[in-house]
Design a protein around this nucleic acid. Structure first.
Length: 247
DNA sequence: CCGCGATCAGTATCTCGACT
DNA sequence: AGTCGAGATACTGATCGCGG
């Protein structure tokens, strides 16, 4: 019987190794990702080659180049590992008894809004659960959630991959403040609606949400009040509505 | 020449059968 | 059921050697 027909004879950790190699395209970085030593990763790759009967990767200057066979395995392997994670996470989860550590990524603003009510809930219903909060770019958050490094990311997201579950926590409002003595009309089509006013802190980056939302106003004058998409959006527990986002 | 994967040698851990 | 020992397996640090 070929080893792939006998799961008992297979070290299923090799699938995690293969996933890391496909993700990093670099043996040393894949080893650091798991974490394990570079020789151990090299041996694991050798066992994978033997098991699958394919070289899987070719050595190049910058790391490892996957073979067509390895590339063909990438998507189904990722789905299988995601199913295993869901299986293990959902099978016996009891908040009151759980001692899990959940890894969350969010901005400091997101933390200030979401964490206080979340911590109250955890203290009341899941006192054994710990949170690891980190900050990452939005692309880093999406990548972290996709590969299992993060359990949850909280941010303002545009498009996300189809295999990532998402939910709207709350909608945010903005307040425009101006010196009343200046006589500047604070309206959507007032001076603040037109360039050169720019909210983005880093103009080289994609436009900030405020700039993106103002863009139609700057060209077409006042717009009707924004409506949230779809059904009534859930709000984060007892999170208060906030003023303007700080830069 | 340099970066990085492969290999070597020694060691630790695991598995399994034999024995009490 | 528990213990022991041999063999298999996987780990590590050090080093080799290939590819660009």
């Amino acid at each position: 019987m070929h080893p792939t027909n006998n799961l008992r004879a297979i070290d299923l950790n090799l699938l995690v190794v293969l996933d890391a190699l496909l993700h990093e395209r670099h043996l040393t970085r894949a080893a650091a990702r798991l974490p394990m030593s570079q020789p151990a990763m090299s041996h694991a790759l050798a066992r994978l080659r033997l098991l699958l009967g394919d070289p899987l990767f070719h050595r190049t200057r910058g790391g490892l180049r996957p073979t067509p066979h390895a590339l063909a395995l990438e998507a189904p392997l990722r789905e299988v590992l995601a199913q295993v994670r869901r299986l293990l996470a959902g099978a016996v989860f009891e908040p009151a008894a759980s001692r899990r550590v959940f890894r969350l990524a969010m901005s400091d603003y997101g933390a200030s809004v979401a964490l206080p009510p979340l911590m109250r809930c955890l203290r009341r219903d899941a006192p054994g659960i710990d949170l690891e909060i980190s900050y990452a770019s939005r692309s880093g958050m999406i990548a972290g959630v996709a590969d299992g490094q993060l359990d949850l990311a909280l941010a303002v997201f545009g498009e996300t991959p189809a295999d990532i579950r998402r939910a709207v926590l709350f909608h945010e409002g903005f307040v425009c403040a101006a010196d009343a003595g200046q006589g500047v009309p604070v309206t959507p089509d007032g001076p603040l609606a037109r360039p050169p006013a720019l909210v983005a802190a880093r103009p080289a980056q994609p436009p900030a949400e405020v700039d993106a939302a103002r863009a139609p106003l700057a060209h077409a004058g006042p717009a009707p009040p924004r409506r949230p998409p779809g059904p009534a959006a859930p709000r984060a527990h007892d999170a208060p509505r906030r003023g303007p986002r700080r830069p």
